[in-house]
Design a protein around this nucleic acid. Sequence first.
DNA 1: AAATTCGTCAACCGCTCCTCC
DNA 2: AGGAGGAGCGGTTGACGAATT
Length: 366
Amino acid sequence: MGRAPCCDKTKVKRGPWSPDEDSTLIRFLETHGTAGNWIALPQKAGLKRCGKSCRLRWLNYLRPNIKHGNFTEDEDEIICTLYTQMGSRWSLIASNLPGRTDNDVKNYWNTKLKKKLLAGKVISLITTNNYINSNKFPEKSCNRTTPHDLDSSISTPPSPSTYDHRHHHNHLHFSSFSSQPQMISSSSPPPFPILTDHMGYGSSSTLVNSTHEISLMSSDPTPHHFSQLGHVSHEFSTNLNNSSSSIFTSSQEGGSSSVSVSADNSSSLAMENSSNKSLSADGSVVHEDLQGGVLMDFSFGIGGPIYNEFVNSSSGIWFQDQKASHEDEAGLSYCCYPNLGDHQSSSYADTKQAQGLINQSVINQY
DNA sequence: AAATTCGTCAACCGCTCCTCC
DNA sequence: AGGAGGAGCGGTTGACGAATT
């Protein structure tokens, strides 16, 4: 037997509030206050609303000194800092931002700040890693995020009791497949840049090894079997000892993506995409010089921009498509597992195959 | 120009927390 | 101590305008 609902849902009005309702609520609250009982308030005020709805309307919209929109850089910073420290405790975070409501902060985080931070973090992460000149693979690790843990790829806030600030310094933290987030520091220097692109529908990837050779890998139609392509129809350079080399691949939608890899001592990678529209709206990062990191895939032609994918070579990062454009693509995720040797995959057409492969490999190897 | 997709955000839902009796 | 019920919270939904195809 469940708990009785707070009001009769069939007898209360729902949906957007009218100006009349707003003024009725404001007048009542200014005169009487809540009298410590929101549930009884609508009846007293003459509103055909649920008490909870009244409370929400007042707290999030009508009460004095509410600020809407236009979060400042300072506020961004506060939100990011507090989110890192305490997670999605929106009311607590909002209490540090005068005039902001928990709902506002939550919406802002979910719609804008998360993406902004993600892009920034990726740059930050990549900037901290200098791995073109490294020639050793990191220790075995299985740092992964689940497709549902996009937040985790930014930084999974641990529970306050276990959080150790010493480990939170300019590294991404990943949670494993276990339901409980884990703090795993990506302290091992990543080995080599690895990039993948979706040349055609099958999985393909480009692997840059310690001698700066590039291998283009592709899966045949059979899952679990990857083989090195004998040849590729894409122009690429096999010599990264030059100060600058380029790899050209084609995106699925026909636009061509150009990745310039500079393998000189500065260990920088510059990337650009000649198909502007295939960049995500918030993908300005691809125009920046990235230190020792490689952008994976630029976009999929599935009806809209997606988050750009990056890989930190010591840790796979899962990125999830935004809202599915097509039903059967709902919840797609892309993955990269640099620590699994040659097996790289990100093409959405075989995500499930890759996932199966990766999961098996993980079981076998870790 | 119309259709489709995306982004935003107010509002809702259901759960836990807290207080009072 | 424990049960009832209101308050508070965080996740999610859905309407709607904007942007894109």
